[in-house]
Computed example of a mutant assay.
Amino acid sequence: MFGKKKQKPQIDKDQLELIENAQRRIKQKKRLYVHFVLFLIGCVLLIIANTVLGIGKDFTIAGVNWFVYAILIWLFLFLYHLFNVFVTHKFMGKAWEKQQLEKLVAKQQERIDKLKAGFVKEETLIAQSDLYNETTPKTQNPKSKSELTIIVAAAKNDAIGKGNKLIWHLSDDLKRFKSLTSGHHIIMGRKTFESFPKPLPNRKHIVISRQKDYKIPHGVILVNSLEDAIDAAKNDSQPFIIGGGEIYKQAMLLADKIELTRVHEDFEADTFFPKIDSSIWKETANTFNKKDKNHEYEFSFITYLRK
């Protein structure tokens, strides 16, 4: 009852493992040092035995005294011991294996966390889209609500850009873009906005960026998500999504309309437009354009509406 209270150890398991590992390393190095000293003394004794005492004086191998071979063999054993202490036990021992395993587990967990974050984001957008469709009557006059429209020029292989630049220059496509978007809000990612030499006239720019301190010109609206961008354009009868690739991917779940310029050629690119699912989208207009002196490629203006 009045005896001394048993003290709890102040060293946790990880610290104890580190101490034990350090003690093992000290013992290994001590044994290596002893081996080195014995090797030096042994070499001296072998030389004295042969040259002074005359032991095996006449015994040679390939014209070389036997004690030279003995020293070389012993040297090999010492070097092998040295390698074990400073290479094998240090880099391939139990502690090394544990460290490598922890690194692999950490990397795998990081990948899992990224995938989870992506799934949560996509599920949120899908849920919002479903809720929007469920609460919007199908017989409603389309003019009575905002019609979110994606406008894009994409190649046969869905390429839309490379190095944050357009791959082609089609005069009529640029004119169509200007005609459709003038007077409306245009929603874009930061990189798309930075690809413009200056803000486009007669349009309200909404830029999506996670950078809270991102500098924008006067009159441009900065938001952190596509949902905030759509909310900022709620008073516009037809706001347009104009890029880039990730914004298009998110917008496909929420948009009502797609204005597509399909360039009838395949291109090498680093940014692509999502595949258009015919079970979700209905083609309502298609105008083919031949190539000419102002248009290097054939292209079509195609309109899709959500079914």
Rank of each mutant, 00 (worst) to 15 (best):
E122V: 12
Q15K: 10
H185G: 03
E147L: 13
R25V: 13
A229G: 02
V152G: 00
L38T: 08
N294T: 08
Y69N: 07
K6G: 07
L148M: 11
N21S: 10
D277H: 05
K257G: 02
I247C: 05
I187M: 01
F177Q: 00
K116M: 06
K6Q: 13
N50Q: 07
T303R: 03
G243H: 00
K307T: 11
V120F: 12
D277A: 06
A159G: 12
A251R: 01
G56K: 02
L16Q: 11
V152Y: 00
M188E: 07
G189M: 04
L174H: 06
Q28R: 14
I230Y: 00
R203F: 00
D228P: 05
Q140V: 15
G163N: 14
F36V: 08
L77I: 07
L174Y: 06
L53Y: 15
Q238V: 03
K290R: 09
H218E: 13
R203M: 02
Y80G: 04
W168L: 06
I41R: 03
K282I: 08
N294K: 10
V263I: 11
Y33S: 15
E296G: 14
F299L: 01
K6Y: 05
Q100N: 13
E110L: 13
N235D: 13
T149A: 07
I258L: 08
R24S: 12
A62H: 11
K191S: 10
T135A: 14
V64L: 11
T181F: 02
V34D: 10
D14N: 11
T261N: 02
L16D: 10
E122W: 06
N294S: 09
L77S: 09
W168A: 04
A117P: 13
I47R: 04
Q100V: 12
K257S: 04
S209R: 04
L200F: 05
F91Y: 15
R306Y: 04
R176K: 09
G219C: 04
K98E: 07
K90Q: 15
A229L: 03
H35V: 06
I41T: 09
L254G: 00
K191F: 06
F2E: 06
D12W: 04
Y304S: 01
A49L: 11
N133D: 15
L53C: 12
A255Y: 02
K138A: 12
Q23P: 12
A154N: 04
R24N: 13
V105L: 11
Q99W: 12
E227V: 07
S209E: 06
